[in-house]
Amino acid sequence: MFGPLTSKPGSSQANKTGSWRMGKKPKFLQKNCIACKMCILVCPENCVLGGEKNTYHCDYVYCKGCGLCAEICPKADIMMIEEGEQ
């Protein structure tokens, strides 16, 4: 008899890691963005989306609130805000 032992690639989408956030979430200001894509590269959940300047945002269903995007942004165009704020 076997229990659940293996998983196929892509199955991490099943884990809604947004529930792991502990109070803070990133806010993409979309003002001084130069589209360097550092926020996309550094995100451990691969949940930052965007293409042109000032179009970047993230999927809060998966964002764990680690703050790496805000930390790495060279233009300080991402800030960490309280969970309840807009």
């Binding site: 229990g3 659940p4 032992l5 293996t6 998983s7 196929k8 690639p9 199955s11």
Partner: peptide, 13 residues
């Protein structure tokens, strides 16, 4: 044929 062995499982599994 990529596959993960021994992944994290929660209380559900």
């Amino acid at each position: 044929n990529p596959l993960t062995l021994g992944p994290l499982v929660g209380p559900d599994y």
